[in-house]
Design a protein around this nucleic acid. Sequence first.
RNA 1: GCCGGUGUGGUGAAAUGGCAGACACAACGGACUUAAAAUCCGUUGGCGCGAAAGCGCCGUGCGGGUUCGAGUCCCGCCACCGGUACCA
Length: 860
Amino acid sequence: MSTTRRKPYPFSDFEPKWQQHWDHAQTFHTPNPGEPDFDPARPKYYVLDMFPYPSGSGLHVGHPEGYTATDIIGRYKRMRGFNVLHPMGWDSFGLPAEQYAIKTGQHPAVTTAQNIAYFKGQLQRLGFAYDWQREVNTTDPGYFRWTQWIFLQLYNSWFNPSSNRAEPIETYSGSDADSARLAYVSEAPVNWCQALGTVLANEEVIDGKSEVGGHPVERRPMRQWMLRITAFAQRLIDELDGLDWPEGIRLLQKNWIGRSEGTEVHFAVADSAEKITVFTTRPDTLYGATYMVLAPEHAIVDRLVTEEQWPAVREYREKTARKSDLDRTELAKEKSGVWTGAFALNPVNGERIPIWIADYVLPGYGTGAIMAVPAHDERDWEFARKFALPIREVVATAPRVSIGNKAACNTEPLECFSGEGFAVNSGPLDGLSTADAKADITARLKAQGLGKKCVNYKLRDWLFSRQRYWGEPFPIVWEDGKHRALSAAELPLTPPELADFKPTGTGEPPLAKATDWLRYSDKATRETNTMPQWAGSCWYYLRYCDTKNAGRFVGTDAESYWMGGGQPGGVDLYVGGTEHAVLHLLYARFWHKVLHDLGHVSTPEPFQRLVNQGLILGEDGQKMSKSRGNVVNPDDVIAEYGADALRGYLMFMGPLEAVKPWSMAGVEGIARFLARVWRLVMEEQQDGTFALGAVSAETEPDKAQFRVIHASIKKVTADIETLSFNTALSQLMVFTNAFVNVSPRPLSAVRTLLTLLQPFAPHISEELWKNLAQRFGSAGELCDAAWPQWDERFLIEDEMEIVLQVNGKVRDKIIVPKDATREAVEALARSSAKIVEWTAGKEIKKVIVVPGKLVNLVVA
RNA sequence: GCCGGUGUGGUGAAAUGGCAGACACAACGGACUUAAAAUCCGUUGGCGCGAAAGCGCCGUGCGGGUUCGAGUCCCGCCACCGGUACCA
């Protein structure tokens, strides 16, 4: 990038100046209720960014895209008289800092502090109106003591199914409270990543590989802390309804939670007292169940397998256990399994069907056992074909009279049909539609105690512990093999000092190396797992409301003011990337609901309105990445074109939600526009400096000028409300272009332009506003000015252009007075020479008059 | 496979069912300049007719439909991007 390029306006002089001014004057500090400068008469607006992980490589242009959008909204709402909460902070626990520490020996806290300083500098150079007094940092003990405190709330509560709420554990009347807690210990198989030396949540495993780093992940049984998010599955679905979220994200969350309605059916095991329960969404196909499959891990397998089959079963189970998730995915095409030697009895007809184990049945979903209906399920079909198991058609596309003939029943279908239709070969169900058959058979099973309706969710409980150093330690100690919570007074529990942050490789967390720290008392030792990175981001939006509070995670007055407001969600606008659709956004909602149930927060949902900014691609149309060399660094853009131009371009390049490619030429276009605004006010001197121009004057705008001014106020206001910043900027360009060649140039027009421009390009507009004060008197600071109002009277034109169409094709245009009647407009249309020509010799069958718009004549 | 999203000039994109391409970028032409940059003015969807003013036809991924009128609504396809996958 050339450094000799002449700057079209001196942004490098005044942009840092204003940034320092805002910092020194604390212009954007927002007081809390009860503080001296707080004005309770104003409504509140809480606009939130997804806070960044301060990585070593600094911001990329995707960050300021969303941040600029919220900054515009925040500055705009402020001018509209709202108390605006617009904070920023750091999601700073996490793997990269720890891995850097392992490599260099430098403590993660040191690199984290350096990265934060770098990020903060970058954000400040963009002129964002954050209240930096509310900065939060998830690795700050003053912050994570409350993350730990919230964990204690989870630990000390349970989900009461009858009230459908989280309640204090004291209200639990069962015998084993530990089994009911929302935070509990489980021995279940988990996703273990050898390369990272830690376990991962389901959400962090993609295609059998770790989301971070892409390392292989395998399943291993380990003792882990879990959070009982599944108890909230239904509420997490239902309560999306009150939120103003993109439909796509709601669907992603719903699909992730994966509610499915079906029936539980109990199968007896032949020659045994054992019983196997399966879950199916197609109970109507029960007569077509020709075998049964258990997950290899299913506990009952041990009690079923026959002597002869044991070697094969043992070998298959071991193979399955060794398989990583990646292998399972790769081998998904080919079905595998082993017969246990046992048979189950189909409850509807007493038929003996073989019981198999196969890894296509997952241990964690439903009951870990299925009835296999190969004629009507693709997976069962494949499996049955491979192992030559019988296939019986029980659903047909049209109702069919059952022949009741055994030979006919055994005719195998030629392909799998998994759709809905009508029951056949199904005894009493024959002829019923799939929906009716489901209801009928479920009622029959229920009456005989052989099954019942039930609901299943794909969502699993949240694996909450990590074998890492750089995370929040659990406020838990162990004594005699039992866990117990620290008291809130013992928080924060800070991580120990360590020289070696490496994972042990055995699954034993690195904190175990700190022997002094580990010892809690003569008998008790500390939990050595740490919390996942998601913990800190689950509640940071609450801490922003009251960052300095040392006595509570958030003060009740501050919380109810900033998070209140009569909507389900407390944050008025939340902007961030789609990548958090099922992770952060689901976890945060879960924690929020627990806190709400326990009476700690005032709303059931955290985020009312959610907007996802679209990805910014490189100039080559590809995803930005270091290896492609197409990454754009905002610092370079600011050095070349200024912060206002970068902000403006980010908003002008297209709709906020759209994926769009970067274009340096586009930045230049915005810079040219801003330079044109600059020259509306300033004139270049002989020596190359700028001074206030002479053309601005306190003259009245004329009628046409008034129309541009008020049309612009109207459009820019409406566009900001709908986050259509690209079209708002177009209108500001139209506004500017309309006054470029005007002399004398009405001061009121220029001031209105600067006011509308302020949220987008705060530095240049503030500077010009101040310069105008040299001659015309001070009007205070622009960011404090009131947002202008438009007056419809200025928008009404005396005359209107009417489009004349014949059969929907434009043939002429006429000018009519604004108050012309329908009849008058039609008469004028009919008398137009071109219309006469186009309709000559034809019958006019119909005339459509759209007032103020067009006349359409329909001819034969 | 399934679930989302997107298809409009050379490019980024605009268009409450009512003049398709606002606003920009790029390109080209002109003014200013010794020259260049910057700036300002103009042209710019395609095809055809015309010396010109202008006129006509076609045009929003493809095929149907609804409507006086469709980029916009409905049905059926195609392509690309993103997510997700043995969830019974």
